[in-house]
Design a protein around this nucleic acid. Structure first.
Length: 891
RNA sequence: GGGAGCAUAGCUCAGCUGGUUCAGAGCAUCUGCCUUACAAGCAGAGGGUCACAGGUUCGAAUCCUGUUGCUCCCA
């Protein structure tokens, strides 16, 4: 069979992915095996694949594929999230393009459009995941807004309401004026911005004093008489909603203001001067305007001091009728206008540049407007307790564990969770209101009537209306690990009992609180068990300059382009080469290139082996027996090491160990060792052993590079039906023979020295040289690996000598004193210098060891094995010094 | 303002309960090679005061304190 010179990744991907699917290898059903389960963090249904998904899903697929090879029943559940705000925003934008306004549609009409949109674009991202090689059980694909999952959401809402965890109340919420909805604290991103700090003076009056701010003369008189107070604000447009001025009770500048009132400019409204130690005296003028409707701290002050609340901003961010001025104009335009107008009236003292933090909506990037409104909340204090304990007790492990502190801090200061959203796309809140202000929480209008009846006997269906709002998306995704297995619909079904709790969750630290913490809460509340055992937190994918990769910055490569350029295998390796858990990944396309080079290397090794002519008539060289023995043990050691990395969730290290096993040990050493001379056949035994090794190697690399490994697996030998690498066995390993590996290290050290000699002396690798050595003690390394050394160092002779030759190039490896005889005279001075340097280093080293050993306190205090190790170091150093000295003498 | 974390080679990072020749890996760099699997390659080499200053210890990259710089989270 002809082996193509180049491996074609896209052909292999197009071949193997459907093959795996058609053979049902991704499919999982409960059986007697141990389950290994991951639920995917559901991406937005209308989203497209970005680099963060690539990282996240590569890690999950590596874990799933390895578990499958370990003989576990691996189940990776995929799905999508309805992402209420993001999706609704997209649908609204799409309608706008068609010239349709959301406000012109009924809820039902809008949802029809939304579902059409979802059908058209939903799930694109799942198709993209397939290109990456993700081995999800696609038959289990779920969607957070499908009927069963929505029903679970509604049931949980009703249940938590009955348990008293859900309440409705007026609170200051984070209002998104673009999305026209409240968002949770977690969905607000605080950004530093350059603002103008505007100093404005308010005229002071007595309680009963008549004063008209529109009277220019009266105003000027007040200013001239120093009868005013100056406040500093970055939000002058909210001045019209001010209902008090607050100063610190201890502030000597303002003590005389007790009982005084200030007049709101333009609005011409009298508000009290209040005193509260909340004020920072050092900030601005030490004097705060209080706008309870538009600032959370002001709101709290307002509650404490019983202040009036004047809501001057409409839901869409324009000024409301209550403002009295600029009605219908946008808050940011008004911010500029009002400063101008106030200045014209003489109220503006000065304007300074100022850096402050402003909240932005995560979904729409609009500036959040704190706003009072009636919303639904989940009481978190008590409810979150089991989720805190679970992490603190290690019942749920966070990887890396540095996140535990952050988690605890958040959970101990948890706020109630605002779960209502003023949207249509999502699960509608199952609360019903009659015309008399009664509320019933239940599934249907009929039930609501029955519940309300005793308070309002005359109530009928026409009097009842359902809450207009939908639930926060996270209120459905927090049920994900249970709902994907129908654990609410059918709490005792086979799947949920088998797969739950799941094993690992792989997600980004930024949603630790949004999602992970809440899943843990729901897990304990509804299953009495943790939803997963380990949470692997990935980093954020950044570009080389450390900026987060995002569409708006345009610094993110298209993952599918990368796949077509470097192959899915190359990209997977590129993603994992430098991404320790919890650390950000500075993505560089060079990493994918390295990944591509890796599969290329593997492919070429395969071509080499497959190209050999095999002969059963030639005897197996003894050198090959030793090489096979060495690689066998090297493989044992590497497998143990790789397993250890996996168990500690060190994905990059597991990959690097795999990389080195293949590139260095297998290709650079083993294959070179057993490679027959040009156009010579290889003996059958060595060939068989090599093919066996190759099978082990592609098994180990399969989780990282599933496609090329499956391809080679099938080309290595004839395979029967079902004999596929994806369901192959993960290599088992025995204890590695350390002395054997150590001997090889010595042998390879000698080979490297000879190569070094060639390099520095300009002796071609093709030209054979002789090597003489002497050793006082055991020479097992040379007994075992003399053939290896002769071959790879290209020696004509390897001989043990007793007399030190002169005029030879000397070097020392371990206890071996080696000499390469030279036809031409060597530069003795240069050699002396080289050896003297080495000698000096060794003597210095010996000295430090000796001083340690002669230190009584060291000998007495250090652990015995440490002391023994030092003694061994001393002996080794002494013998090495002796060897070098002899070599020097021979010059 | 509150909390957490980080600082080791040009870059990205390992370095576990202080003790192996502990100062490492990969990439990049430099030198020499078109050696018939692979130039997407082979062989070899150079490169770090472990941020800074103290302290504990027989011994510190590792533990403690302070300083500086950076990142993230929360308000």
């Amino acid at each position: 069979m002809e082996i193509p010179k180049n491996y074609n990744p896209s052909e292999a991907e197009a071949k193997w992915y459907p093959y795996w699917m058609n053979n049902g290898y991704f499919r999982s059903v409960p059986d007697e095996r141990e389950p290994y389960t991951i639920v995917i963090p559901p991406p937005n249904v209308t989203g497209v694949l970005h680099m963060g998904h690539m990282l996240n899903n590569t890690i999950q697929d590596v874990m799933i594929r390895r578990a499958r090879m370990l003989g576990k029943n691996a189940c990776w559940v995929p799905g999508t999230d309805h992402a209420s705000i993001a999706t609704e925003a997209k649908v609204v934008a799409m309608l706008k393009e068609k010239g349709i306004k959301k406000s012109d549609l009924t809820r039902e009409e809008f949802l029809k459009y939304a579902f059409e949109w979802k059908e058209k674009y939903g799930g694109i991202i799942l198709e993209q995941l397939k290109k990456l090689g993700a081995s999800c059980d696609w038959d289990r694909t779920r969607f957070t807004m499908e009927d069963d999952l929505s029903e679970a959401v509604i049931d949980v809402f009703i249940d938590l309401f009955k348990k008293g965890y859900i309440y409705r109340g007026t609170r200051m919420v984070n209002w998104d004026p673009a999305g026209l909805t409240a968002v949770s604290d977690e969905e607000v991103i605080h950004k530093e911005v350059q603002s103008k700090l505007c100093y404005v003076r308010y005229v002071l009056v007595d309680a009963d004093e008549a004063y008209d701010n529109n009277d220019a003369a009266a105003r000027q008189r007040k200013f001239d008489n120093n009868e005013f107070i100056t406040i500093a604000t970055v939000r002058p447009e909210t001045i019209l909603g001010d209902t008090a001025i607050c100063v610190h009770p201890e502030d000597p500048r303002y003590k005389h203001l007790k009982g005084k009132f200030a007049v709101i400019p333009m609005a011409n409204r009298k508000v009290p001067v209040i005193f509260d130690d909340y004020i920072t005296m050092e900030f601005g003028t030490g004097c705060l305007k209080v706008t309870p409707a538009h600032d959370i701290n002001d709101y709290n002050l307002g509650v404490k001091h019983h202040l009036e609340v004047i809501d001057t901003i409409n839901p869409d961010g324009t000024m409301s009728a209550a403002a009295g001025f600029y009605i219908g104009e946008d808050r940011f335009i008004v911010r500029k206008k009002i400063v101008k107008d106030l200045d014209a009236l003489g109220h503006v003292v000065k304007i300074e540049d100022y850096t402050n933090k402003v909240g932005y909506s995560e979904r729409t990037d609009a500036v959040i407007e704190p706003k009072l409104s009636m919303q639904w909340f989940v009481k978190m204090q008590e409810f979150s307790k089991p989720a805190l304990d679970a992490v603190m007790d290690g019942e749920v492990k966070l990887i890396p564990d540095k996140f535990v502190n952050t988690y605890r801090h958040w959970m101990e200061n948890v706020h109630d969770w605002c779960i209502s959203r003023q949207l249509w796309w999502g699960q509608r809140i199952p609360a019903w209101y009659d015309n008399k202000g009664n509320v019933a929480v239940c599934k249907t209008a009929e039930e609501a009537i029955a519940m309300i009846k005793d308070k309002n006997p005359s109530v009928t269906v026409t009097d009842i209306r359902q809450d207009e709002d939908v639930l926060d998306t996270w209120f459905s995704s927090w049920l994900w690990p249970i709902s994907v297995f129908d654990g609410f619909k059918d709490p005792n079904n086979k799947d949920i009992n088998y797969y739950y709790p799941t094993n690992d969750l792989v997600t980004a630290p930024e949603i630790l609180f949004f999602w992970v913490a809440r899943m843990i809460m729901a897990g304990y509340e509804y299953r009495g068990k943790r939803p997963f055992e380990n949470v692997y937190l990935t980093g954020i994918v950044r570009d080389k300059q450390g900026r987060k990769m995002s569409k708006s910055l345009g610094n993110s490569p298209d993952p599918l382009d990368l796949i077509s350029k470097y192959g899915a295998d190359g990209v997977r390796v590129g993603m994992l080469l430098s991404s320790p858990a919890g650390n950000d990944l500075l993505f560089d396309e060079g990493l994918c290139e390295q990944g591509r080079n890796f599969w290329n290397k593997l492919w070429n090794a395969f071509r080499l082996v497959k190209g050999w002519e095999v002969s059963s008539s030639i005897e197996q060289p003894t050198a090959n027996i030793a090489s096979i023995e060495w690689f066998q043990h090297r493989l044992y050691a590497a497998t143990a090491e790789i397993n250890d990395h996996y168990e500690k969730y060190r994905m990059s290290d597991a990959l690097m160990s795999t990389y080195k096993l293949i590139w260095d040990d297998f290709c650079a050493w083993y294959l070179e060792l057993i490679k027959p001379a040009y156009q010579q056949p290889i003996d059958a035994k060595t060939f068989e052993a090599t093919v066996n090794f190759f099978e082990k190697i592609v098994s180990i690399v399969h989780p990282f590079m599933p496609f090329v490994s499956e391809e080679i697996w099938h080309l290595l030998r004839e395979r029967k039906q079902g004999e596929d690498l994806i369901v192959g066995k993960w290599p088992v390993h025995a204890a590695a023979d350390k002395s054997l590996l150590d001997d090889f290290t010595i042998a390879s050290g000698i080979i490297a020295e000879v190569r070094n000699f060639r390099q520095s002396k300009g002796v071609s690798p093709k030209e054979q040289v002789e090597l003489h050595y002497s050793i006082s003690g055991q020479a097992s390394a040379l007994d075992r690996f003399s053939g290896a050394i002769i071959k790879l160092a290209n020696l004509s002779k390897l001989e043990k000598i007793t007399e030190k030759p002169t005029g030879a190039f000397p070097f020392v490896v371990n206890q071996f004193e080696c000499f390469i005889p030279l036809s031409e005279s060597i530069d003795k001075e240069a050699e002396k210098e080289r050896l003297t340097k080495e000698l000096e280093y060794s003597i210095g080293f010996l000295k430090s060891v000796e001083s340690k050993l002669s230190n009584e306190r060291f000998v007495n205090n250090a652990k015995p094995d440490v002391v023994a190790a030092e003694q061994k170091k001393k002996a080794d150093a002494e013998s090495k010094i002796k060897s070098i000295q002899e070599a020097l003498a021979s010059l």
